[in-house]
Design a protein around this nucleic acid. Sequence first.
DNA 1: GCAGCATTTGGCGAAACTGCCAAATGTGGT
DNA 2: ACCACATTTGGCAGTTTCGCCAAATGCTGC
Lengths: 104, 104
Amino acid sequence: MVSRLDSNSLHRLKAHAQVLKALAHPTRLYLVETLAGGEKCVCELTERVGADISTVSKHLALLKKAGIVADEKRGAMVFYSLRTPCALRFFQCIESVQQASAES
Amino acid sequence: MVSRLDSNSLHRLKAHAQVLKALAHPTRLYLVETLAGGEKCVCELTERVGADISTVSKHLALLKKAGIVADEKRGAMVFYSLRTPCALRFFQCIESVQQASAES
DNA sequence: GCAGCATTTGGCGAAACTGCCAAATGTGGT
DNA sequence: ACCACATTTGGCAGTTTCGCCAAATGCTGC
């Protein structure tokens, strides 16, 4: 008799997946990487990304909703900053995953 | 003058996002967690997850494609194992993200 | 108040993801 | 060869994501 997936675990896993999903997009990863160098306004992030400002704004809203970044309004501009720098440590593991993948 | 997202970085970010996307699903996270306890056949994983076997098979194929798990056929059965245990360390950071998120 | 800039929100079509069923493939035993 | 079992693959409908445009909101200075 094997242990089955119960609803408590499912709830926890859904929450974890939500955080990962927030990071699982090239543009959003780039935003996180860029914010690791310090807070930036939406205007600067938009210029760096090279997409429509509304697109960047939505990506940032999604990262914020996931708890990964924080925003602060100062005057007419909004500055985003990285709230959980540990997100960057993911990269190291991801690299090793890809290395393992390449070896096969 | 700000540094912009170049096509080399974009390529790297896409690859990273692909790995994260593979993990960004409750069922697949559960599979990874379960495989952390040692290799398992598809039949056992299916029973634990409680979904259609074809669904579980597709999730496993996706994890394999991302380089996160490995498969080995022995007889009629296929055993999956965790290839990059560091994927589990994500959880710790994810928890802290959620904690930060809950505080606001 | 109004004009101008920064950002967010609504909405739309295109694309990708999910989970199930049915069919196909592969393996071992008789 | 045939059957039973384990797994994968194809395909389909429903849902979600994506990126752009247009419109709305908010702030500053005149």
